[in-house]
Deep mutational scan, measured.
Amino acid sequence: KLPPGWEKRMFRSNGTVYYFNHITNASQFERPSG
């Protein structure tokens, strides 16, 4: 389970998975720990 605010997303163009935090508007490719 991801830390609060984080969700898994995917770029439609190339299928790359990334993680987005809707609380802080942060995004990263590494899976957030917590």
Rank of each mutant, 00 (worst) to 15 (best):
F20E: 09
F29N: 07
R9G: 03
P3V: 02
F29K: 10
E7Y: 03
P3Q: 02
E7V: 10
T24G: 02
F20G: 05
P3E: 04
S27V: 15
F11W: 09
K1T: 13
E7I: 09
G5I: 01
S33D: 12
T24L: 04
R9E: 06
T16E: 14
F11L: 15
P32M: 01
N14I: 06
K1A: 15
Y18F: 07
G34M: 13
M10Y: 14
P3N: 00
N25L: 12
T16M: 12
Q28W: 05
E7Q: 09
S27T: 14
P4I: 07
M10T: 11
G34C: 05
E7A: 08
G15K: 05
F20T: 05
V17L: 06
T16D: 09
S27M: 15
F11G: 13
W6N: 01
P3W: 03
G5T: 00
S27F: 15
Y18G: 07
T16A: 12
V17W: 06
R9A: 04
E7F: 05
R9P: 02
Q28T: 08
V17D: 08
S13A: 08
K8R: 12
F20R: 00
G15E: 10
Y18N: 03
F29Q: 07
E30T: 07
N25Q: 12
P4V: 08
K1W: 12
P32V: 00
G5V: 00
H22K: 11
Y19A: 00
A26K: 14
R12L: 14
E30R: 01
R9W: 00
Q28P: 00
Q28S: 07
K1M: 10
N21M: 04
F11K: 13
R9N: 06
E7R: 06
N25S: 09
Y18L: 03
Y18I: 08
K8A: 11
F11V: 15
P4D: 10
G15S: 09
F29E: 08
F11H: 15
A26L: 11
A26N: 09
M10E: 11
R31V: 10
H22G: 09
P32Q: 03
S33H: 10
G5E: 06
K1Q: 12
P4H: 08
N21L: 11
G34F: 14
I23M: 09
